[in-house]
Design a protein around this nucleic acid. Structure first.
Length: 559
DNA sequence: ATGTGC
């Protein structure tokens, strides 16, 4: 008889698993000296680091293996055994609960018309909406594209359930836009190269843990430090599609300028980054392949949300610190930003400067949004209240909204958890006021559109788009495909500098070969098509655009 | 996306 290959996993954390080869000579009798049970427990101790394995369940069914008969009938190739230190089976009970809340007909809205959408992402969107518990509404934004399991550029609204894997590991990832005092003449054309040269000292850890903890503390004393292991990445952009980009406002026509103060010809810094390793550690801590959903009010749901909120704050503080480090390079004359440079040394009062730097940075910030997060909002959205100053054209209420009824201060309201995975919100999360502008970045070097969300009866006041918009152009090609096809296409060319004839081009800092191609504009959809789809869906207006002048991905400081 | 997971 051949050996049997089974998988063992921790009952309490099923992502922890190991294969076990059971020789034909091992005994099904749990009391035998060479029992399968003994072999499984020994492997659980060494490979899963479970000190005292005591009970064994079969994955999916949850049947406990007790008698020799149980072992004999269940040990076959590819079976998954869940090893417990005494606790009850955690897998299947959830799956049974799940069924009653699944909505196989929940509504799926696709906001893509011109932008191309891969069929795999549609399958992922629909399958997810129809199989996870509590989903009442799903939206595919025009930048929709396939993820490993769940789609990106997607929004899921669910009642009574939280699904951490829907938003992924980069909890709190988003974009923040900051004004600089640079003039466009300092960054236009060939000047971009000079500016790019100034962007140094931006890789690696920022100062000491004491500084970082202070940066992660707000003026009320709340702090979102994740411990030195994760905080050491604070102030770094990261990899993948993350970037910081210097842009010029080429056109802008805001219909209701809420004192944002953005003007044509301004030079702005767009920072796209997240919670680095911290958010991933939160997802990993709470979920496994078999544990993806938490019922509202359960200890897991509350504990996850607490850590989730912390990761969101961390990510926001990370974007601010990235901006500070960039401003230290871009505006060297401003003492508020000196702290951003690791070259500036302080005796013992450096930490005191943090409050000043943060205070001076906030007025520079135009907008800061999370596009990977889960948020509780009143559902369905209702007609928003009018602004205090009534607009002259009241029929245009969709453009002149004061505040949305999204907070739960009207007790009997129904609400949902909006899960955003690569989707921007249409409102300010803390004030619940509609955003008057938000960025829709194209891929590296292509225009960033300036969006203004629209709330109108035609879109049921934001229900149609689940109070969300596209967060970027969206991938048109997988990383693997982009790497192979684009490295061929641009063989022997430097695609990081504008061609000498191109005065409108972008200077790109990207000292990582694979990223050069994986993040090339050709790997993404056309941002104009994505923007047009939002306009055609009636969920946003395009009120202007920015030209990218210097795009910073990653620098090899050793050069 | 990630001090990835083998």
């Amino acid at each position: 008889m051949p050996a049997t290959r089974v998988t063992i996993a921790l009952n309490s954390k099923q992502s922890q698993k190991a294969p076990v080869i059971i020789p034909a000579s091992a005994s099904t009798d749990p009391a035998a000296a060479t029992s399968i049970r003994g072999l499984v427990f020994k492997t659980a101790q060494s490979k899963l680091r479970l000190k005292k394995p005591t009970r064994v369940y079969v994955g999916r069914t949850g049947q406990e293996l007790l008698t020799e008969e149980d072992w004999k009938s269940n040990i076959k190739d590819d079976v998954v055994l869940l090893i417990s230190a005494g606790e009850e089976y955690v897998g299947a009970k959830k799956e049974l609960d799940v069924h009653s809340d699944v909505n196989p007909t929940s509504f799926v809205e696709i906001l893509a018309f011109k932008a191309p959408v891969e069929s795999l992402s549609l399958t992922q969107l629909t399958t997810t909406a129809h199989t996870l518990p509590g989903i009442v509404h799903a939206v595919g934004q025009p930048d929709l594209h396939p993820g490993t399991k769940f789609p990106i550029g997607a929004v899921f609204a669910s009642k009574g359930w939280i699904h951490p894997p829907l938003i992924g590991g980069d909890i709190g990832c988003g974009m923040a836009w900051y004004k600089t005092t640079l003039s466009r003449s300092q960054v236009d054309g060939g000047k971009g190269k000079k500016v790019a040269e100034k962007l140094r000292g931006l890789e690696g850890a920022w100062r000491t843990q004491a500084y970082r903890e202070s940066w992660l503390q707000d003026d009320q004393g709340h702090n979102c430090s994740a411990g030195e292991q994760w905080d050491s990445a604070l102030g770094t952009i990261g990899a993948g599609n993350h970037f910081a980009e210097l842009q010029v406002v080429e056109e802008l026509s805001l219909t209701n300028d809420d004192g944002i103060g953005l003007r044509q010809d301004d030079v702005v810094l767009l920072v796209h980054s997240g919670s680095r390793g911290f958010g991933g550690s939160v997802l990993k801590k709470f979920t496994s392949d078999l544990r993806t959903s938490f019922e509202e009010g359960s200890p897991d749901a509350s504990a996850y949300m607490k850590e989730h909120d912390k990761a969101c704050e961390w990510a926001k503080a990370n974007r601010d610190l990235i901006a500070l480090r960039f401003l230290a390079c871009l505006e060297p004359g401003n003492v508020s930003w000196h702290l951003g440079s690791s070259d500036a040394h302080y005796d013992d009062d450096g930490i005191k400067m943090i409050a000043m730097a943060k205070k001076n940075l906030q007025p520079r910030k135009l907008v800061d949004i999370w596009h990977n997060n889960v948020e509780r909002v009143v559902w369905p959205p209702s007609a928003p209240s009018l602004p205090k100053k009534a607009p002259s054209n009241t029929s245009n209420v969709g453009r002149a909204v004061d505040k949305l009824t999204l907070s739960d201060d009207t007790p009997p309201a129904q609400y949902v958890y909006i899960h955003r995975k690569g989707a921007a919100p249409t409102y300010n999360a803390s004030t619940h006021r509609p955003l008057s502008l938000l960025p829709l970045p194209g891929s590296r070097g292509t225009p960033t559109l300036i969006l203004q969300p629209i709330f109108s009866e035609a879109t049921s006041w934001g229900l149609k788009n689940a109070l969300s918009l596209a967060h970027g152009a969206g991938r048109a090609m997988s990383r693997a495909k982009a790497l192979s096809s684009l490295s061929q296409k641009y063989k022997g060319q430097n695609i990081l500098e504008p061609r000498s004839s191109d005065i409108e081009g972008t200077w790109v800092i990207c000292d990582e070969r694979n990223l050069v191609f994986e993040e090339a504009p050709d790997a993404y959809k056309d941002v104009q098509a994505v923007g047009q789809d939002l306009v055609d869906a009636g969920v946003a207006s395009v009120v202007g655009w920015c030209r990218a002048r210097v795009s910073y991905k990653v620098r090899n400081e050793a050069h």
